[in-house]
Every structure is written in C-alpha cells, then in structure tokens.
Amino acid sequence: MSQKTSAPISRRQFITGAAAAVASVTIAPGVFLMRPADAGTAEGVRWGLLIDSNRCGDCNACVTACHEENGVRGMDRPRTDAQWIRKVELRDPDTGHSHSLPVMCQHCEHPPCEDVCPTGASFRRADGIVLVNKHTCIGCRYCMLACPYKARSFIHETLTDQAAHAPRGKGTVESCTLCVHRIDRGERTTACVEACHDKGNGAMLFGDLNDPDSAISRELAEHGGTAIRADLGLNPGVRYQGI
C-alpha cells in the first residue's frame, strides 16, 4: 500500500521515461559530435607547405623541432619508433647529384588513409589538415598500408610524458598534424617551418593554398611546384620545388 503512494508514476510512465532516458543517453554523444570536428577552422582555407629542396641543407632541424613540439620521443628502437617527419636523401644515379628534403603527411585532398579507414578515424578537416581521431582509431594499420608516402607511424608501446596538445596512445596510428594546435590558436606557422627559418635555410613555407595573395600561393604561381607521386592524383597540400 505504501508502495502505491510512494510510486506515483505508472508502469507505462516508467517505461516511457526509461526509454526516453536511454534514448537521450544514446543520442547525446552523437548530438555533441554533430558539432563540426573542425570548429575553429576557417572556411575556404587550405593549409599547406611548400618545400624548396634546393635550399634544404644537411641539418635535421625540422625533424628535431617537430618531435620536440609534439612530444615524439624515440625509444632507441628505429624499426618501431614513430617519425612524424623524416629527411629523405635523393641521389640521381645518372648524374651523381644528390639533395635532401623532409617528408611528412602530405595532407592530401583525396587521402587514401581516409578512404581505407574502417571506422572513419582518419579524416580530413575542412581546412585540409588530415588527422587521426584518437578516440576511434582501432589500430588496424590499414591506413599505413594505403599511404603512398609512408607518413604514418603506429605506437608500439606505452608512452609517458606526452605533450598536452598532441595526445598519443599505444595501439593507435599517428602522423604529422600540421601543428594543428598552433593553427587553432591562431598562429600561422608550424614547428618545422619555424625551425627551418631560424636555422637560416628558409626552405619551408607554410600558408593558405587557397588564398592567391598568400606567400605560398605567390611563390607557387611564380616558380611552380610539384607533388610527390603527382601521378596518383591525390592533390597533396605539401608541395616541393627542386625535386
């Protein structure tokens, strides 16, 4: 009897209420995720890099700066250590001429990593930056097989002491973020570009490829540039001169 008075809701109301509660709990995260993942990115912008291989020196400044900035530390295991950016030495066997250039995620307009990712964890922001969603990457590594630039690394061990703005986790895949944390703070340069500039080489340029007045667009318009594996038609956001 006391039950009756203390339970003013009918069974039907309870079930309806419970169903509504379950539904809201289920849908809510989805609703919040509807918020564009790239809030803070400007519409119509396409961030990119231009790398002049002729100016690229023997140094490793861009690599060191990137890994410092993003907390990418090696474990002295070269096979499994992550590399977000690497220096590649090129030598023409006919002429003997050699030069080097940095290679990182090329932030393709049509990224094969995004195509093959089963969960959609690999994605491209509206401003052209290709990223891995650390919450939905299951660590299948199919993107690493698909990437024509070997730009991605898999985290092979437990990590400690990470940079707050660049979360990394064992068992997931990662790559260059084009220093997205800087861009979202309103800065208009990346760690690698800054280091290259400070070193005095000035081989790297960051900017908006969609803005015809940006330094990068003007340089490309004047002297041209090419993409690595342009034949694949992926339209990378990273362009090179002097290859």
């Binding site: 195509d115 919450h135 299951i138 660590g139 590594r141 898999f154 997931t172």
Partner: peptide
C-alpha cells in the same frame, strides 16, 4: 588490433568507402 578493446567502435562507426 592496436586497440582490440575498441571492437565496439568498429561495430558502431563505419566509413563505407573502406
């Protein structure tokens, strides 16, 4: 998988181009 514990993610998030 790097994250076998996320099997449920693979069952709930689909990229149909993959």
């Amino acid at each position: 998988l790097g994250r076998p514990d996320r099997l449920v993610v693979a069952m709930t998030h689909y990229n149909f181009k993959s």
